[in-house]
Computed example of a mutant assay.
Amino acid sequence: MISLYKDDVKEVEDFLIYNIGKINIVFSTAKDDRSFNRYKDYGIKNLNSIIRDFNLKNVEYLNQIHSDKVYIYDNSNKSIKDEEGDALITKEENTAIGVFTADCVPIIIADVKNNVIASIHSGWRGTFNSIVIRTLEKMVNEFNIDINETKIFIGPHIRQCCYEVSEELKENFIEKTKINKDLLFKGRNLSMEECILKDIREFGISEENIYSLKLCTHCEENLKLYSYRRSVGTYGRLFSFAFIK
């Protein structure tokens, strides 16, 4: 796994951007309090501004429900913004596909040979149910992606330093994942990233094609991010997305 830090990505206004070939991977921040809540007028305005800011035709996302449901978007389809699911795949150019987070894990998958991308929202339920594997399986079955040319980016999320779960959930994760409990947990603090990494590695993605942006939404001090757990009642949403140009 390659650790990405803030200096490894290009910071443009409210975004952290990583470019690889025709594919752009973008993680929003909370700089200037810019939030992407799809249920608020300001959130829709900010989502639509992505089209202008990045010179795109469209931006697509799902009604997230903490599932392992995966959708494919192509330009022959109507908008799928009201479909319920937590992962979205496309090969269409000039269309951003993204996910909303405020502690959950955003994951971007990019087959840089065939130019196929996916965006995943992986909370503890999606992580427990291996949504990243469900997405990779669909990308292989529907688009015949090249595993050797597929790169995966894990974005800012609440990390093990700050993510305490119940004793029951701890035991469930240990039993399900079979990961060494001293690696998976510090006390009752869960590393969702370790679960995701196990799935990615077992699927056959090579270590040099796995990237992690080492930012915790809960305790990061040098970059403003949104965190559900840190907030009291109200919180913004980050939007992590990818597009092909």
Rank of each mutant, 00 (worst) to 15 (best):
D33T: 06
I131Y: 03
L4Y: 00
S67T: 12
A30S: 12
N115E: 11
R134E: 13
S28F: 07
I89M: 00
E164H: 06
N115F: 02
E84Y: 06
R34P: 00
K31D: 14
R159M: 10
A102C: 13
I179V: 09
N24I: 01
H66Q: 14
R38M: 10
N77L: 11
E137D: 15
I65L: 05
R159N: 10
S28V: 06
D33P: 00
I25L: 11
N94I: 02
N189H: 15
C216K: 05
P106H: 00
A96V: 00
I158Q: 09
I108L: 06
I17C: 10
L56H: 11
I2D: 04
K151T: 05
N180E: 15
W124Y: 11
K178Q: 15
F27R: 05
R134D: 08
L47N: 00
L4I: 02
G21K: 08
Y228A: 05
I20N: 15
N55L: 10
I205V: 14
M139H: 02
Q64F: 01
V232P: 00
R34E: 12
I145E: 08
N114W: 02
G155T: 04
N115V: 01
N55M: 08
G155K: 02
S67R: 07
L225E: 02
F36A: 06
K178E: 15
C195S: 06
I65Q: 12
I131C: 07
D41E: 14
E83N: 12
S231C: 15
K138H: 09
K178R: 13
V140S: 11
V105R: 01
S206Q: 15
D103I: 05
I117W: 03
I80H: 03
E207K: 12
I200F: 01
L88H: 04
N77Q: 14
N180D: 15
V132D: 00
S76D: 10
R188C: 08
K245E: 13
K45C: 08
V140Y: 06
S191V: 06
V105D: 03
L169N: 15
I179K: 04
D53T: 10
W124N: 05
E83A: 10
T217Q: 07
H121P: 01
F173A: 12
R229Q: 09
S3C: 07
A87W: 06
I80R: 06
G187K: 08
L47G: 07
L88A: 00
N141Y: 14
I2K: 15
D68G: 03
K22C: 01
I44R: 10
N209F: 03
L183N: 15
H157P: 05
